[in-house]
Amino acid sequence: MMNEELKDAFGELINISFGSAAAMIADLFESFATLKVPDIKVIAMSEIETIVMEGSDNQEIYITGQQFKGNFGGEVVFAIDKKSAGNMQTLIYSAKEFDETQAFDDNEVEQSILEISNIIGSSCVGKFVELLKEDVMFSPPTIELSQRLLSGLDKTRFSQIIVIRTVLEFQDMKIVGRLFIMFNNEMFGRLEKAIETFIEEL
């Protein structure tokens, strides 16, 4: 498991990457937003389904999944409960006039969740990749309002998961989500080493 110093450095790194992510999310909702990272932990792959559903009160939750590929590879899962999705809907409809001619005429909430997940996931993984001096490609994300996406995960591919609780704060409401970045042991080890170097260079 990660020691406290390493965990702090992870947090610092993620906070840096989330600075620009917040600005882009604010742009998405045409509203000022801050993105906070109150909690980071590392869990084993076997715990993922329990941790994702934690606090959901057995209600359905939106889960997105997105792979990143290259020498440094893994998968990002973002989970958001229905209450936060409802808050998101309020934000969307207060920001936009409904327009029948939109080519994007489908579920705007799901679209926004995909976008937030892409922005947060790419920012975070992008920062890791920058440290490792690697390059990755992201695959298109998918979304489900159920656990089907989790049961479809190949759990043998990954061993460690970084769990980041994210709180997006708008003027008068919060969107709480959790980001799960999954790696195998080798990738996680490389990341730990890169962060140790990052700490030394501070």
Binding site: A103, F104, Q111, N118, P140, T142, I143
Partner: peptide, 8 residues
């Protein structure tokens, strides 16, 4: 950035 046909 992406769009997914199941959503859009």
């Amino acid at each position: 950035t992406f769009t997914n046909a199941r959503v859009l």
